[in-house]
């Protein structure tokens, strides 16, 4: 079986800055594959290339067996996408948005109404079908986007941070449904995310940073790279604590705004001794088993942050509101 996605030495520059830098990977048909990375890592840029919205500067990519630069229409016929940011027409109703989607994706006429009703019901939007999307809450809009992306039953579905801003129950319900669809139709899922629990749904994960893939494996194997438990210490003088821990225990230490972090074999047994021996006063201490976040922290020395929108995003949001008022 041909892989659902084949990417070889793909690069995309904006001016001279490489947003995606020579990445290669393959996604098997029917797989759930994840891109995990911090803001600006190049996740959306990769998705946009794979969806034929922008052209690569170099390298090749095939989706469903078709070249994204040369067989754009075949690629477009094979995919569905849930964009990271809004792509609904908010002057239309929910049902109209779905109906127009069905129209351009040539969903058979006899099936359209039923599929739309089912999609709306599944996303718990059935009673709002006739309302204008501009009156929807953020979460409702997001759910409508997801319903729309699935409407034409694509072979390969791209999800760019699909559940951003949704509550945990909704997220898990969406995931149930996505995984069921994968089972039924053999659909391939390619997702990007900041959410660790969402990444755990993937068979394989690529960790991407500064446009490069720095690790690619199953979640379990990635976590195995972090040996033992993670200890985080917050002290009155983190710099001194860092030097002290390094020297005394010979472990690698990462220091950031939240304190110092390091791995030890058995955290719970290690901490009491540490507290006795460390000359720097400790404010807080925590110990936990490794997560994918730690893998990232270990590989890059930085944390994946998902709480704060970048300044660029904020500015864009403000401009949009201005435009809306002006329109």
């Amino acid at each position: 079986m041909t892989p659902a996605i084949e990417v070889a030495r793909l690069t995309r520059r904006f001016k001279t800055f490489a947003a995606v830098d020579n990445i290669s990977f393959e996604v098997n048909a029917g797989e759930v594959f994840g891109f995990l990375g911090p803001n600006g890592a190049g996740k959306t840029t990769t998705v946009r290339m794979l969806c034929t919205l922008i052209r690569p500067n170099s390298g090749t990519a095939r989706v469903a067996g078709y070249d994204v630069a040369r067989q754009q229409n075949d690629v477009r016929r094979s995919i569905g996408i849930i964009f990271q940011d809004a792509s609904l027409d908010d002057r239309l109703t929910a049902r109209e948005n779905l109906r127009f989607h069905a129209m351009i994706y040539k969903v058979p006429r006899t099936e359209v109404n039923e599929r739309i009703s089912r999609a709306l019901e599944w996303m718990e939007l059935a009673d709002r079908a006739r309302d204008l999307v501009r009156n929807f809450s953020g979460g409702m809009k997001r759910r409508l986007e997801i319903a729309r992306g699935l409407l034409h039953a694509p072979r390969v579905l791209f999800l760019d941070e699909p559940t951003l801003g949704l509550d945990p129950q909704t997220r898990s319900r969406i995931w149930e449904r996505l995984l069921a669809l994968r089972q039924e139709h053999g659909m391939t899922l390619f997702l990007t995310t900041h959410y660790m629990d969402e990444a755990e749904n993937c068979y394989r994960i690529a960790i991407i940073d500064h446009g490069r893939i720095i690790a690619l494996d199953t979640p379990a194997k990635l976590k195995a790279q972090v040996q033992g438990d993670l200890v985080r210490l917050e002290t009155v003088d983190d710099a001194a604590a860092e030097a002290e821990v390094k020297q005394r225990y010979g472990v690698e230490v990462v220091r950031d705004a939240t304190g110092i972090h390091f791995e030890v074999e058995n955290g719970a047994a290690f901490v009491p001794g540490l507290l006795r021996e460390l000359p720097v006063a400790v404010r807080t201490v925590s110990v936990r088993p490794p997560t994918l976040e730690d893998v990232f922290l270990k590989m890059t020395g930085r944390e994946i942050r998902d709480d704060e929108a970048s300044n660029h995003e904020k500015l864009k949001g403000r401009l949009k509101r201005m435009g809306r008022a002006w329109r």
Binding site: T52, R76, A86, S87, D89, I104, Y105, K320, G323, R327
Partner: peptide, 18 residues
């Protein structure tokens, strides 16, 4: 221009339509 700014244009452009 508005469709591009508010995102809807992407929806049409990834669709398999000339």
């Amino acid at each position: 221009i508005w469709d591009r700014e508010f995102g809807f244009l992407k929806e049409i452009l990834v669709a398999p339509v000339p």
